[in-house]
Each structure stands twice: as C-alpha cells, then as structure tokens.
Computed example of a mutant assay.
Amino acid sequence: MSSAIEAFLAMLAVERGAAPNTIAAYRRDLEGAEEIAGDLVKADRAALSRLAGAWSALAPSSLARKSSALRQFFGFLAEEGWRGDDPSAVLPRPAPRRPLPRLLSHAQIEALFAQAEAEALRGDRAGVRMLTLLELLYGSGLRASELVSLPLAAVPRDAPFLTVKGKGGVSRMVPVSGRARRALSQWLEVRGTGGTHLFPSRGAHLTRIRLFQLLRELAARAGIPPEKVSPHVLRHAFATHLLEGGADLRMLQTLLGHASIATTQIYTHVDSARLVALVNERHPLAGRAKHD
C-alpha cells in the first residue's frame, strides 16, 4: 500500500478521530481501488473510469461509500501537495436510499422483557446478566460495542447516567432508567469481583458476537423469530419508540451519539396517523373555534 494512503489513514485517526473500524473500511476501499486503477497518486481520469466500470454491479450504498472514500482521498492528496489535480469528478455519484431499520413492535419488546425478567427471577448469573444487557440496549439505546466494552467505572453511583465512549472515542452521558438501575444493582451483586469491565469474559469482556447470540437465543425462548432481533434492532426500537412518545430529533441525536442530525432523521418513519393526530391536538390553532 502506498505511503499516501498510510498518510491519509493517519490523518483520519488523528485529525478526525475516526474509529478503527472506519479506518479499516477506508483501507479496504482504497487498496481495492489501487488493485484496479494502479497507484492512486498517479491515476488519471481514464484509470478512475475503469473503477466505475468495475463497480457497476455494486449496490448503490456500496458504490456511494467507495466513491466517497476516493473523493476524500483525492482531496487530501491535493491539500498535501501529492498531486496538483483532482480527477475524482469522473467517479459515480449514486443517490442511495437508506433502508429503514428493522423494527420490533411494542408487543414483541414486552415479550422479550417478560422472558428475560422471568429468567432473572431465578437469580442465576446468566439470567440477571441478560436482563441487564436488554435494559441497557433498549432503555438507553447503546451500540453493541459501547455496551460490551463498558468499564465498571462507568456505572453510576448517585447520578442516573452512564459515561459511554462512542465512535471516534467521543464520550457522552447516557441516562439510565430506574428499571435499568435496578437490573444493574442486581447484576453487580452476582457478577463477581474479577475484571475491570461491567460484563467480563475470558477475553476481557463479552464480545459483540456473543451478545448477538444471547439476544437471538432469548428471542427464540420468547416466541419471537430470532432473525428479527439483534443489538442494533433494539437500538432502533429505543429511538423509534422515543420519537413516537414525543422526543425531538436533537435530543435523540444526543442520546444516540450521532455526529450528524442527518443520521438521526432515519427515525422519522413513525406512524403517519400519529403525526396527523399530533398536529391536530398540539398545534397552537388546534383549539380555536372555526370562523364562518
């Protein structure tokens, strides 16, 4: 891989605070482009046109991601003096439609919690841990990676908040409901004393893959198709159900740790009938009598 790509990736890490997974994705896209177009520092428009042809069968979202990575890279090359032009104008500019997230209904959420609560009542470690994980996923909207890597120090003593380190190493305060605090207290009683993470495991902490498996196993026991349930689906449910309850997008953006409000706007797919009812009930003119 060229030194220019290494310099670009270093810039993403240092100046933009990009997460390791983000940097790895950029690396794959740029290395793949060099396999087709050759040295990107010297690539001309004809070379980039070959990329467009090679990517023609990709999904619009994948094509948009690869094109965006190259545009940012060529912008970096121009700023740093690696080359005097920017040939990225020939790259395709698809307009991908972001798919709506999969959702769980309120009834399915209730079934998941009923199953988890029944198992936690037995008092065994696995059941209490599962309920605590579920409370924090749906009750606080944490990402899977944020949840499994929580240190013990993040657990609140008095204030009802968790300190969470999100994407790019950015920390935020996340509210913890009374239900979740009770589950946390019960978990700390049975957790044991080993490790520095809230959910310890032999590899330091519970992995995202194991969390995914545990949720699907719980869904099956609750009579819900396992393929419908994942940590990300519960995060979507948290956001959608909050929005349905009257939360505004800016508050939701803060809770979810989104860098851009545009990312949060995907959750505006709430029930249209509810929105109409909200306007009819809450609009300042809703209570005024009609004038002939």
Rank of each mutant, 00 (worst) to 15 (best):
L142D: 08
L142R: 04
L142E: 09
A144M: 04
A144W: 02
S145Y: 03
E146N: 04
S149I: 06
P151L: 10
L152T: 06
L162H: 00
T163V: 15
V164A: 02
K165P: 01
K167T: 07
K167A: 13
G169P: 08
P175N: 08
P175W: 01
P175V: 05
V176E: 02
S177E: 01
S177G: 15
A180S: 11
A180G: 12
A180H: 05
R181Y: 06
R181H: 04
R181N: 07
R182S: 07
R182M: 09
R182V: 08
A183M: 04
A183S: 15
Q186T: 09
W187D: 07
W187K: 09
L188I: 05
L188E: 03
L188D: 01
E189I: 00
V190I: 14
V190T: 08
V190D: 02
G192W: 05
G194K: 13
G195N: 03
T196R: 12
T196N: 02
H197A: 15
H197R: 14
R202S: 14
F212I: 00
F212K: 00
Q213Y: 10
L215I: 06
L215K: 08
E217K: 10
E217F: 00
R221V: 09
I224V: 15
I224R: 02
P226Y: 10
P226D: 11
S230L: 10
V233I: 03
V233H: 07
H236A: 11
H236S: 06
A237Q: 08
F238A: 07
A239L: 06
T240R: 03
H241P: 05
L242F: 07
E244C: 04
E244I: 00
G246A: 10
D248Q: 13
R250S: 02
M251A: 13
Q253E: 00
H258P: 11
H258N: 04
S260E: 05
I261H: 02
I266L: 05
V270I: 15
D271K: 08
S272M: 14
R274S: 10
R274K: 12
L275W: 05
L275D: 13
V276L: 05
